[in-house]
Every structure is written in C-alpha cells, then in structure tokens.
Design a binder for these strands. Structure first.
Length: 225
DNA sequence: CCAGACGTTGTT
DNA sequence: GTCTGG
DNA sequence: CCAGACGTTGTT
DNA sequence: GTCTGG
C-alpha cells in the first residue's frame, strides 16, 4: 500500500505546514513512483527538504540498486526487521504529500483513485531513511510506514500510510529518542479525514507527470442506476 | 561453523 | 506467471 | 504501485 | 550489519 503519491502544491503551503523555510525550487510531482526521487525532512537537516530515492536500500546492502523492494515498512514488528530496525530507531523522516493513489480492479482494468485530506491540507506521512555508501558515492533512500486501514479505507485497501496529523506527532516522529512512546502516540486515523475520487488510468504509467492526472473522472453509471 | 536472507502488497 | 524498471 | 519484458547467435 | 537455517 501506498505505492504511488504526489507532492505538487506551492512550497508556501509546505513551509507553513512543516514550519520551515525552503530556499530551493521544488520540482512538483503528480506521480511519485517507487525509485523516483521525492522530498523528505529529517532531524539531521530539519530546516529544509532533501531529495531521496523512494525504496529504502539498507546501508549493508551489497549493491546500491534501486529495486523498489522497500517502499513500505509495516509499523507492526518494524523494530525486529533487519532492514528497518536501525532506521526506525535513528533515522525517521517526514514525507510530505498532497495525495496518495490506490487502485480498484474492474475486470482487467486498474482504475486509480486519488486520496487526499478532506480539508485539502497537506499530508505528512511517517517515513524512515538510510544512507548507502561505498566510499566512492552515496545514496539516500526512504520508505513509508504503513498501518492497518481505518474503517473507511478498508473499502479500498488492506493497508494505509501512517499519517502524522499534529505538530506534536511530527516532532516526536522526527526527534524523540523513545521509540516505543513514539509508536504509541500514533493513533488510527479518524474516519472522514480522507476523501477519494476516481482519476484517469493515465496515472498508471509512472513516467506520466502532469496536473491533469489529478482531474476527477466521473464514475461510469452502473447497470441499475 | 558458514550460507543465505534480510520486504510489502495483494492473489482468480 | 514472474521479474525488472521506473 | 503499474508497465513491460521475458532470448540467442552473430554482427551493420 | 545481524539473524536464521542447516
């Protein structure tokens, strides 16, 4: 879950939500796919966004290959997973988004839906990151934490991203040293916080990236309506 | 001891 | 069907 | 996450 | 790097 998302809002909106100054031009993306670069915020460099590749590569991996294997990390049991345990303890990050995407399969066709905050505010997803280096070069990568869905998200999928709604949650996720306390303060998202609508299958191609991808497509009429 | 894995989602 | 690439 | 490839010999 | 399986 959460295998595709977007961040294409004005940077002022990001600055306001994260209480930071962004002294760089941001590349908007309407279609962030695994292995793409996206912006995250870490405690290490808390005053700015930094680009990292989506799909965590553990620092001990033999190859710095973007396999897209670790785009998500389950919150449950994360502390015991070799690929994630050090990152979740020492290298957590905030992943800003304006929406994420999920698919419904109709026959052979995969129909994408855009899911955003009902109040249109920016989303902050919980992430972890790692840095792989071999002396020559280094690469930073991240993963998005997932949780069981709340009631309304169950209709579309079996998992959902972990959202950090309050500034308190965000700062704890970034810099608290008490991991169990941090994990404990993340509650199930209330219903009605998220809204979704059908969009074009043009989203399916990871290389497509333009604003029209987020345009609503009407649900086709069913046989009995 | 060494070798090999180390992850997630969703599946008619 | 399954793996790789983006 | 989805889309697209999935192979060999021999070579312009 | 660290854990599990043999």
């Amino acid at each position: 879950m959460c295998g595709r998302y977007s961040l294409a809002i004005p940077k002022e909106q990001i600055e306001q939500r994260l209480s930071i100054q962004i002294n760089q031009a941001l590349k908007p993306s309407y279609n962030i796919a695994p292995t793409h670069q996206a912006y995250v915020m870490t405690a290490e460099q808390p005053l700015r966004l930094q680009p990292m590749y989506w799909g965590l590569i553990p620092h001990w991996s033999k190859q710095a290959k973007l396999t897209g294997k670790h785009i998500n990390a389950r919150k449950e049991g994360i502390q015991t997973k070799p690929s994630f345990r050090l990152s979740v303890r020492y290298r957590r990050c905030l992943v800003p988004a304006d929406s994420f995407y999920e698919w419904r399969t109709e026959g052979q066709v995969k129909i994408p839906y855009r899911i955003h905050n009902t109040d249109l505010s920016m989303m902050v997803m919980a992430g972890i990151w790692d840095e792989w280096t071999d002396g020559q070069s280094s690469i930073r990568t991240f993963s998005i934490i997932t949780t069981p869905p709340n009631e309304e998200m169950q209709s579309i999928h079996t998992r959902m991203p972990l959202f950090l709604e309050t500034a308190n949650q965000q700062s704890a996720w970034l810099s608290s040293t008490d991991l169990n306390e941090v994990l404990g303060m993340m509650n199930v998202l209330e219903n009605n916080r998220l809204s979704m609508y059908r969009i074009s299958t043009e989203l399916n191609k990871p290389q497509n990236n333009y604003a029209e991808l987020q345009k609503a497509v009407p649900e086709p009429p069913t046989l009995f309506s």
